[in-house]
Structures are given as structure tokens and as C-alpha cells.
Design a protein around this nucleic acid. Structure first.
Lengths: 109, 109
DNA sequence: ACTGGTACATAGTAGCACTGAATAGCGGCG
DNA sequence: CGCCGCTATTCAGTGCTACTATGTACCAGT
């Protein structure tokens, strides 16, 4: 992955994963796989897990341990009310930024 | 400024400033002021200067010292060919990310 | 002399994604 | 049985970026 993408993901990946969780609960390995399918070709697994731990510490998600048929138990994360609020704040911030950049991109040539 | 914005700017501010320079050459103080006018309410001056130094080190800009009527000489930065290329790469990366997020935002509710 | 606006610079801090490795459970294959 | 491969999580260490806070310097108006 390009260096630009790596830096751009800072603060954005957080929102992406929250958005994924807002659709339905999921666990780390699953999220990583889904991200890869969606074109974020090599987002490191470690990155996603670290992100989820942060969510938990911030109290944005609820966690439930679910035994898996294949492998160790899964930690299923679901967005709670505070997480929803945080996600909405994220969209507001994103929209502002996207608007500014669109202006620069469109008007700049 | 919110913490979310701070993190989101990482990797993005770089592109924003490059885009500003692509319209016409500018110097640090001017860029900071323009960013503030455009709604990035408190982007620190130091941040912009550090960014410009990085641009110079990466060889994305040409620099010219121009004496100012009011205060110390200005360092006027202008985008060179390599900088243009880097900016285009930035837009490609940005477009991909914006597209993915739009999908998540629109489809997610 | 003092204040305020212009203009640049830098040391230190915090946060986030990446690297690389370790741990652990389960199934299948030789 | 022992090894490999897939699933699944965790963690220490690194690099990059934006922020904070401060300092330097130049000039005009009072």
C-alpha cells in the first residue's frame, strides 16, 4: 500500500470500522477480511485489533465472546449508543473535509 | 479543533497544501491564513512550516526568498514537476478513499 | 520604548497505522 | 502421532504526522 494511503487512513480507518460495525456486529478477523475485499488490500491485522481495543477502552462498543467452530473464541464487537454518536461526529468531520477537498480539486484546474 | 479532525488531517493536510500551491506559489504565513479562512479554524503555524520543510526535503517544491515590506523575508514555495506528480497521486488515493466512504455512508442506513 | 502585526523556526508530545512475531484452537493429511 | 494450514487474537517496537509552546526577527504607529 502506498505511504499516502497509510497516512490518510489515520483517523479515517477508525470511522470506516465504526461504520462497518454500525451495520451489524462483527469480530476482528472478519472485519479485516471484509476490508481486504473492499480494496484496502493490505491493512494489517494488528492494526484492526489495536483499533478495536481502543474502541473498547473508549466505551464505544460492547463486546461478547462467542465460541468459534474453527479456532479460538471470537470477540464480537457491537456499536453502542455512545459509539453511534461518535460515528455521527465522524461523518460530520468527514463531510467537512471532503467538501473542502472537493472544492480544491474541482476548482483547482 | 476536534481530535477526530486532527487525526484525519494526517496525510490529508499535505494534499491540501499541495493543492493550494498548485494554483499559485505561496509562502507559509499566507497558507496558514488561507487555511484559517477556509474553515480549518486553528491549524497551527508550526504545522504548516514543518510541512513545507518536508516538501522541500522531498524535492516537491522550489523555494525562493522574497524580501517582504513588512517583516522578515518570505520563503515562497512553488510546486515543481515532481510535486505535480505527487499531487496527482494524492488525488488518486483520495478519490479511492472518498469513494469507499461514500459507499459506507450512503449504504449504511 | 512599547505594542502589534508579519514571518519563520524548532524542541517536545501524543496519536495512529505498520511490522513482525508470538500464542492458541481446530481439522486434515501422510 | 506429528506437521501443516486456517482461524483468531495479542503485543512490543517503529515511523510518520499534527499539535503545543516557545523563540527569533523585522517593521510601523503611538
Amino acid at each position: 500500500m502506498g505511504k499516502q494511503m497509510t497516512e490518510m487512513l489515520k483517523g479515517t480507518l477508525e470511522g470506516i470500522v465504526l461504520a462497518i460495525l454500525s451495520v451489524r456486529p462483527a469480530y476482528g478477523y472478519e472485519i479485516t477480511a471484509r476490508l481486504r475485499e473492499q480494496g484496502f488490500s493490505d491493512i494489517a491485522e494488528g492494526t484492526v485489533y489495536a483499533l478495536l481495543v481502543r474502541f473498547e477502552q473508549k466505551g464505544l462498543v460492547d463486546v461478547e465472546k462467542v465460541p468459534s467452530e474453527k479456532g479460538p473464541p471470537r470477540k464480537v464487537y457491537s456499536l453502542n449508543a455512545q459509539g453511534q454518536e461518535y460515528l455521527e461526529e465522524f461523518w460530520r468531520t468527514w463531510s467537512f473535509l471532503a467538501g473542502q477537498l472537493e472544492q480544491l480539486h474541482g476548482g483547482g484546474r
